[in-house]
Each structure stands twice: as C-alpha cells, then as structure tokens.
C-alpha cells in the first residue's frame, strides 16, 4: 500500500501531508491524555504499536500472484481510539521510508492518510456499529480489523487514481486498475489480519480484562468469557 518515494506529483504529496498533519497532532494529544490519566496503559499502547510493526513487516503472498502486507492498525484503533494510531503509524512509516526505501518521505502524507487515518477510523466505526447491532465480540473485532485493512488499500488506489487518471477512461478506469492490484490482492490478507486481531484480543481478554474494561472495549460479560 506504500506509494513509492517520488511517485506522487508535488501538489498531491503536499496536499496529503497537509491533510494528515492535524490528525497526527490530534493523535499525540489523545495519546498524552490517555497516558496521563492511566499511566499503566503505556505498555498496552506499546503492544498496539508493536502489532502494527509486526504486521506491516510481513509481506504475504496473495491469490493475485503478488505480495502485500497487512497494516495492523485495527487493534490500536479499537483499544485507544482511531486518533492514537496516526502518530503510531507515522513512526512505522518513517522507519520503513528512511531505512527500507519502502514508501517515502514525499509520499508519507498520503501513506499516513490511508494506513494511519482512514484505516483506524474505519476500524473504530465498524467496531462500534457491529457491537451496537449486537454482533458477538469476536465478530466485531474481525470485521473491524479486516475492513480497516481493506479500506486502507482502497484509499491508496483512490490516491493513485486521482494522481494518475487514465488518459482514456479517466479517474474511474484508473481506480479500477489500481484497485485490481491493491484491493483484490488485499482481500485474503485482510481476512488474515482480522483473524490475527481476534487472536490477540482473545489473549488480552483472558489476561488483561482490567485494561480492556478501563478502555471500555469490553463490558463486564465479554471480559469474563
């Protein structure tokens, strides 16, 4: 999902950077507030960041014959709210842009927007919606994490389609092409990410029910299951 260094026209690169900056700032404020109120949650915040670190390093094969990676942003978005994931995503993306030439500094804003902003907000939204509809806890987590993953790649396809509209078919045709690469490849990976997020939530619900209750992720019933 990483748009490569230099592969967005200057005005797009700048625009996405400006769009992402306030989210990162708001995220830092949100994280500070959480940590100040409950310093014991610092470690769990580290887990959310670590999960993104692991999952975004794993390039997995997909049915389309190409490889891509999950994002791991769903976990943190459900635990700490979507805003908290913007600075965490920024750390991961910077690491990859600076050391791995994966993504880039000029495309950081765009990549942040898809992976660390739209994805987490999708996760939090889907989680709240499905829980509100009375879906089982595990199903809500699964849907939130996998749809967040997929949303990230749809946004990347849109960003590229906007920057590089097809000379004949325009933006729509271009979007279909980029989505064919990114979004379709991502479907099985998004399912994997959803399953892995359920797995880690099972562990947290078993061993850290207190933290989950404090973060209001679970009610009394789920954390005792």
């Amino acid at each position: 999902m990483h748009i490569m260094e230099g592969f967005l026209p200057v005005e797009h690169a700048l625009g996405w950077a400006l769009a992402s900056a306030p989210f990162v700032a708001a995220g830092i404020v949100s994280i500070r507030r959480t940590i100040r109120a409950r310093p014991e949650l610092r470690m769990l915040l580290g887990v959310a960041a670590a999960f993104t670190f692991v999952l975004s390093a794993l390039k997995l094969p997909s049915v389309t014959g190409s490889c891509s990676h999950p994002t791991g942003t769903g976990l943190g978005a459900i635990l700490f709210g979507p805003a908290a994931m913007a600075p965490i995503g920024a750390v991961v993306l910077l690491f990859q842009a600076l050391l791995l030439a994966h993504g880039g500094l000029t495309t950081l804003g765009a990549n942040l927007f898809s992976m660390a902003i739209v994805g987490p907000f999708a996760a939090a939204g889907v989680f709240r919606l499905t829980k509100g509809l009375g879906a089982p806890f595990a199903l809500s987590i699964f849907l939130a994490a996998s749809l967040a993953d997929l949303a990230t790649y749809v946004v990347t396809s849109l960003q590229l389609a906007w920057a590089f509209p097809d000379p004949v078919g325009g933006m729509a045709a271009s979007f279909a092409k980029f989505a064919g690469i990114f979004a379709v490849t991502q479907v099985p990976l998004a399912i994997s990410e959803g399953l892995l997020t359920v797995l880690i939530f099972n562990a947290l619900a078993r061993f850290n029910p207190q933290e989950l209750r404090e973060l209001r992720v679970t009610g009394q019933a789920e954390s005792q299951a």
Binding site: M1, H2, I3, M4, E5, G6, F7, P9, V10, K59, S62, T64, S66, C67, S68, H102, G104, L105, T106, T156, L160, F164, P165, D166, P167, S174, K177, F178, I181, F182, T185
Partner: peptide, 21 residues
C-alpha cells in the same frame, strides 16, 4: 510486491512521469 506493480502501472498510464525524489 504489489507496490512495484503499482509503480509499473503508473509507467503505463503516464509514461512521461518522472519520480521527483
């Protein structure tokens, strides 16, 4: 990598595009 495929696709859509960084 899907990222490389996307780069190649940019090349076919806009052959004159030069990465600027």
């Amino acid at each position: 990598g899907a990222d490389d495929k996307a780069r190649d696709l940019i090349g076919t859509i806009d052959p004159h595009y030069q990465p600027w960084f």
